[in-house]
Simulated scan of single mutants.
Amino acid sequence: MTIPVQLLRSVPVAQGTTAFHFSKPAGFGFKPGQACDLILPGQAQNNGADTRHAFSIVSAPHEDELVFATRMRDSPFKRALAQLQPGTTMELDGPFGSLTLHKKAERAAVFIAGGIGITPFMSMVRHAAHSHSTQPLVLLYSNRRPEDAAFLTELQALAAAHAPLRLIATMTDMAHATQPWDGATGAIDSALLQKIANGLDAPIFYVSGPPPMVAALRDTLEATGIDEDDVRSEEFYGY
C-alpha cells in the first residue's frame, strides 16, 4: 500500500544535487539508513523506472519531514521530479532496506560514502547526534570536488558538535574544482582503511555509492584484511 506525501520544497545541496522535502505521514516510522520508493503523481499502479525511484531517507526518524536527495540526471523520472511544484502530492512506498546500523553499540561503525551515497549515512549520523549516542562512528566521504559534496557543511558541524563522530572528507579531482579545499585529497585506499581499522574496536564497515566504487572498495577492504562478514554495502544505481 502506498502513502500520499506532499512536496514542501526542493533545495539545492550541491552542484547538480537537490534535496526534496516532503510532509511526514502521521505514524510513519523507519530506521536510519532505510529507503522508500517515490512515485510520480497518478502513477501508483505503474512499476516502471520512469514513474518511480528508490531513494534513501536523508532525514532522521525524529524529524518532522521526510527528505530525499538525488543527483539531477537527465532521465524521464528526474525531469518530472524537477518540475514538480510545492504542494504536489506524490505516493510513497516503503520503508525498506537493510543498510541499518548494527545493534552492538560497543562495536564502532565506519561509513564509506561516495558522492550521493552519503544519503543513508546522513540519517544515521543525524540520529546519533540527536540521541547522544556514544557509539564510535567514522565517516569517510569521497567526492570529486567540494562543490559536489552534498551536506558537507552540515557534516562538518555535526562532527564538531558530536564527539563520537569523526569525519574524513576527501576530494579526488581538485584540478577541476572552483571552490577551495584544505582537507584531504585522493582516493580512499588500503593504507587509510588499515589505519582506521587499527584504531577502532572490532569495527563494522558500511559502503554506499555508485556500483563501481562499491565493488572497488569491497575489494580494497578485503585486501586490507577486513572480514567480509564485517562489510555491508548498498549500490546506488541510476543516481
Rank of each mutant, 00 (worst) to 15 (best):
P32Y: 12
Q83Y: 03
G186I: 01
G33C: 15
A44V: 14
P120Q: 04
T18G: 04
M174W: 04
D37P: 07
T224H: 00
P61V: 14
T100L: 13
E65I: 08
C36M: 15
A129Q: 13
D37I: 11
R71P: 04
N198K: 15
P203Q: 12
L8G: 02
V58H: 08
L7I: 09
L140K: 01
G117I: 04
A14L: 08
N46A: 05
T100C: 15
Y141Q: 08
R218P: 04
L217Q: 14
P32G: 12
Q34N: 09
A161W: 10
A223V: 01
D64A: 13
A177T: 02
A149R: 02
A184C: 03
N198T: 09
G183F: 04
T185V: 08
S10N: 14
I112L: 03
M174Y: 01
L165Y: 05
R107E: 15
D173K: 10
G42D: 02
P4H: 11
L101E: 10
Q135H: 07
G199Q: 07
A216F: 01
A215T: 06
T224W: 01
W181G: 05
S98F: 13
L66Y: 09
A216L: 06
L38H: 06
K24Q: 10
I57H: 05
G87W: 00
L140M: 02
G238H: 06
S208I: 08
A169N: 03
Q194C: 10
F55S: 04
P212I: 07
E65W: 06
H162C: 13
T172H: 08
N143S: 09
G199V: 08
S10Y: 07
L200F: 10
A54P: 11
T89A: 08
N47C: 03
E65Q: 14
E91R: 08
P146H: 00
T88P: 02
L217G: 06
A49G: 06
F111Q: 11
P203A: 11
